[in-house]
Amino acid sequence: MKQEEDFDANLAGEDGTEAESKTSWFKRIKKGITTSTADKKETPEGLWTKCPECNYICTVTELRELLFVCPKCNHHHRIGSEEYFDILFDKNYFDILFENIRSKDFLGFTDLKPYSLRLQDSWKKTDITDSIRIGSGKVNALPLVIACMDFEFIGGSLGSVMGERISRAVDHCLEHKTPLMIICKSGGARMMESAFSLMQLAKVSGKLSQLTDACIPYISLLTDPSFGGISASFGMLGDLNIAEPGALIGFAGPRIIKETIKKDLPAGFQRSEFLLEHGFLDFIVDRKEMKEKLTKVLTLFKN
């Protein structure tokens, strides 16, 4: 049985896979192989990668050339802002904006771990400064500001910094008359910022309203996963809402819905194709065709 992912765990800063399924018949008590990963004499780390959907194995270099799309089953691997900027911006040339805005633990929030420590750990673990990066560059010579989320930073959670960086990106777009695209990849609001994170929904929506008044296009690209506060605000407010194939997109997480209705969810529930079918997406775009399609869209808006 395929492991079900728990987005909530990502928001709690843990890795998001539940080790054991509730329906498993047998439970392994003793560990099978006791050699720790570090002691294994295997190929160098990070050289090979396995597709989580079809188990196809290929090298990371190969996968990178394929824009992190599985050649066998077209599964779109999760990638970060660095990869998206590389894929979309001409010659990978762009400015990174508003990196100086950083999260802080204003509330002194402590769950199993203090929020300040979580932030420290995330900064150490990754080379990104928060869950969103703003890049300003050109896509086939057309100027575009891309705000791209990074799932590896506390589950791409929506906190004050994401709100502020997007707000300033909007100001930047207003000033330079540049279209804006937000690439969503997030489990939802950052609970450690409590009501402040909730208010970012209103904050960003207000800023988007200024883009509307200035007749500047805003595109929302939803990737796997886009949940909670993201879909309840700017994720669904694009002049165009588009998505990558097979991305999980929704308001409530599948686990919560399953617990509420006490039934299994239908296959393909909350996938991009499901959303397209129900009328919430303009189209689904393959990563390989994204740049071309984006260019087409930007040209159409321009003329």
Partner: peptide
């Protein structure tokens, strides 16, 4: 909270809330 149900998702719970927030500001 907004209802976390199957039909709610089909009919776009996220979009409905997003639209309200956006329109209320205006």
């Amino acid at each position: 909270g907004a209802y976390p149900g199957l039909e709610a998702e089909e009919r776009g719970q996220g979009e409905a809330i997003a639209r309200n927030i956006y329109e209320m500001i205006r």
